[in-house]
Every structure is written in C-alpha cells, then in structure tokens.
C-alpha cells in the first residue's frame, strides 16, 4: 500500500515555508512599508521616549486625571497588576457571582468618595472590568461623570473640560459600528497640556 509518506512530509515542509515563513515575513515587510506606525503598536512618544500606545489603556488614579475602566490583569506571580500589557486578562466572574456584585459596589463607593457631589448613577463601564484588562476607552458618559472631580482637582472650569471631552469623543464608526468612546490616555495627555 502506498503510505503517502513522501507527499505528507514534503507538503508539510512546503506549507510551513509558504504559510509559516514567506507569508508572515511578506506581511511584516509590507506593513512596515505601508503602515509603519500601526505595525509597531501605534506608540506615543514624548521627547523621544515611548510613553505608551494609543490602543493600550494605562492605570490612572489621581483625582486630577480621568480614570479608565477597572482592569483584572495580573503580574507574573499572579498578583493584581492593573493594565499589565504583557499579560492581558479578565476577571471571568460570572454574572451570578457575589464577588462581582461586591467588587462593583466597592468601585461605586470609591467613585462616590472621590467626588461626594457626584450623586448621579454611575455608568456601568466605569465599574466593570474590561475583557482585555487593557481597554483604552471609556464611554462619554463615564468621562462626563468624572468632569466635576477633575475640574476641582485641577482648578479648571467644567465647561472647558466638557469641550475637551467632546473633542476626544469618537462616535460609532460609520454611525453603526461599535460604541461611542473616549480614549483615556489621549484625553489625559491633552489635559496635562492645558494651562
């Protein structure tokens, strides 16, 4: 019986070279040529140093900054390390898990403590952990919720901040794809540049 060993081995070799070497290298070359900024991670530089990526959220907790979404990422030892972009991860808490309810309540309490005047309902994305743990965005409502606190901490007018948030709000793409969103890192960088 013809065992087909030669075609199996040779085709495996050929497919490996074609799809495992030539294809990724060609894409890398073309990507460098056509979209060098995106291919390298859409990095944001300041004075020659990389301060982050446009697509990767960072941990913000000062009263004068806009905060991003809770992040459930861990460090290499399994301890919480929010926005660890070398180890993406989520909470994977079930909707019925009391740990989730408790965590949400705690986050609501922290937000209220940081701004006792903010009595309106807390937008859900501000108190739930994202899927990647690196979500770069919050909803416009979540940004709006934080404006009074940031304004007070910075000594800026709320109206000015509102305009800044509006300028950083992206609508759903083509009106129907995805959700309206605000890039937290970019917003905070713009905020730091205000004077």
């Amino acid at each position: 019986m013809n065992l087909q060993l030669r075609p199996a081995l040779m085709s495996f070799l050929a497919f490996s070279l074609l799809t495992g070497v030539a294809y990724p290298l060609a894409i890398t070359g073309l990507a460098k040529l056509l979209f060098p900024h995106q291919a390298e991670g859409s990095l944001i530089r300041k004075d020659g140093r990389v301060i982050g990526s446009e697509w990767i959220g960072q941990s913000f907790s000062a009263p004068g900054e806009f905060w991003g979404r809770p992040s459930a990422t861990l460090d290499a030892a399994g301890k919480p390390l929010p926005y660890n972009a070398a180890n993406s991860g989520a909470s994977n808490l079930a909707p019925s898990n009391p740990v989730l309810w408790g965590a949400v309540q705690e986050r609501v309490a922290v937000l209220r403590a940081a701004d006792p005047l903010a009595t309106g309902p807390v937008p859900v994305d501000l108190v739930t952990a994202s899927g990647s743990g690196l979500d770069p965005h919050i909803s416009p409502a979540a940004a709006e919720f934080q404006i009074p606190r940031v304004a007070r901490a910075r000594g800026l007018e709320a109206g000015r901040l509102r305009a800044l948030v509006a300028a950083h709000t992206e609508p759903p793409q083509f009106g129907i794809l995805g959700e309206p969103r605000v890039n937290v890192l970019k917003l905070n960088l713009a905020l730091a540049a205000q004077r």
Partner: peptide, 10 residues
C-alpha cells in the same frame, strides 16, 4: 453616550 448592558468582560 453610554455603552449599555452587561459590560463586565467587554
């Protein structure tokens, strides 16, 4: 202005 619904893990 707000993503609605079950946003944990999204």
């Amino acid at each position: 202005s707000q993503a609605s619904g079950n946003m944990e893990g999204k």
